[in-house]
């Protein structure tokens, strides 16, 4: 039996599932990386994802195409990003309060609209995002199964990780973004308003979290919306951001790790109650948060040791 478990854990199916579970978290984490670099503690990502999930399905339902759904999500992402920045950047409100309120607001708004439009049971089977088949990839035995025939956004995410990484570390705007969070007055005395970069980061975060939600409803669940379907993914994404120090590539890696544990949980369902295996990614998140802090503390202590007492 133990062998069976191991076999099912390290199957292509597990790794494919890892990819699927990781993608919405990864997309949101990319957005969270932007606000984190801009020095904003963004715990409102869960709400942003939920709005993305809803408006994706709504667009798809209204216009009969997933593309229209995504277009609506992008518009919504910009609006939500602007809204978030208005409070956090312009009014300098407490990020924690605004983030929490945004999450509750999103839950209320999407549930209200969903019930008003689709009725109490929600909606299913709206036009969904296509899966992508890459010819020839199947020839590679294990990888082919893992990487091929996935929903469009899984591949889009790879592209976005690269783009966001280049943006943050290889373009002047990325430098300004990081300066706006790390030391805003530096940017101000250089003649660039740090607030501008914070607004930009909020909008990008709204867009990317929106895409995360769209992938959830239009990709993963094939055009379905269910109430509270973000299911704390925004918070997991936040943990990924902290863990990765907002490096998009590392954040994607962290998201994959969650995906992996989530997939293992699903595999173990035959042996252990799914209610217990469901907790694994969340426990991992807590362990990660602790690890991040302990790591930085140890590093500091280490730095102290490296520099000996001054010699006079």
């Amino acid at each position: 039996m133990f062998e069976d478990i191991l076999k099912s854990i390290f199957s292509a199916g597990t790794f494919n599932q890892m990819l699927r579970s990781a993608t919405p978290v990864a997309l949101a984490a990319l957005g969270g990386a932007m606000t984190e670099h801009a020095g904003i503690m963004n715990i409102g990502m869960d709400g942003m994802i939920l709005m993305g999930a809803f408006f994706g399905v709504l667009g798809s339902y209204l216009f009969g195409s997933a593309a229209a759904g995504v277009a609506l999500v992008l518009a919504m992402g910009i609006v939500v990003g602007l809204f978030f920045a208005l409070f956090v950047v312009k009014f300098k409100s407490d990020e924690f309060i605004i983030g929490t309120a945004l999450n509750t607001f999103a839950l209320g708004l999407t549930s209200f609209l969903s019930r008003s439009i689709f009725g109490a049971s929600g909606t299913k089977g709206n036009p969904a995002l296509p899966t992508v088949h890459i010819p020839g990839l199947d020839a590679i035995p294990f990888l082919g199964q893992v990487l091929n025939d996935n929903s469009l956004f899984i591949y889009l995410t790879w592209l976005l990780v690269l783009v966001m990484w280049l943006f943050v570390y290889k373009t002047p705007y990325g430098f300004w973004l990081r300066a706006s969070g790390e030391k805003p007055e530096t940017l101000r005395t250089a003649g660039i308003a740090p607030e501008k970069m914070k607004w930009l980061a909020s909008i990008l975060c709204g867009l990317l979290c929106g895409l995360a939600g769209a992938h959830l409803s239009l990709g993963q669940l094939q055009g379905t919306f269910a109430e509270d379907m973000a299911n704390s993914r925004g918070y997991i994404a936040f943990a990924c951001v902290i863990f990765s120090k907002a490096n998009p590539a590392v954040a994607y890696g962290a998201a994959l790790m969650f995906g992996f544990f989530d997939a293992i949980g699903l595999r173990l369902q035959d042996y252990i109650s799914s209610d217990l295996t469901n907790t694994i990614p969340y426990i991992i998140t807590i362990i990660m948060m602790v690890y991040v802090v302990v790591r930085s503390q140890r590093r500091k202590r280490h730095a102290g040791k490296r520099l000996p007492a001054r010699q006079t």
């Binding site: 309120a101 509750t104 607001f105 839950l107 209320g108 708004l109 549930s111 209200f112 019930r115 008003s116």
Partner: peptide
């Protein structure tokens, strides 16, 4: 739908 309550609250 009663969620209008959550909207008003937030």
């Amino acid at each position: 739908p009663n969620q209008i309550y959550l909207i008003i609250q937030t």
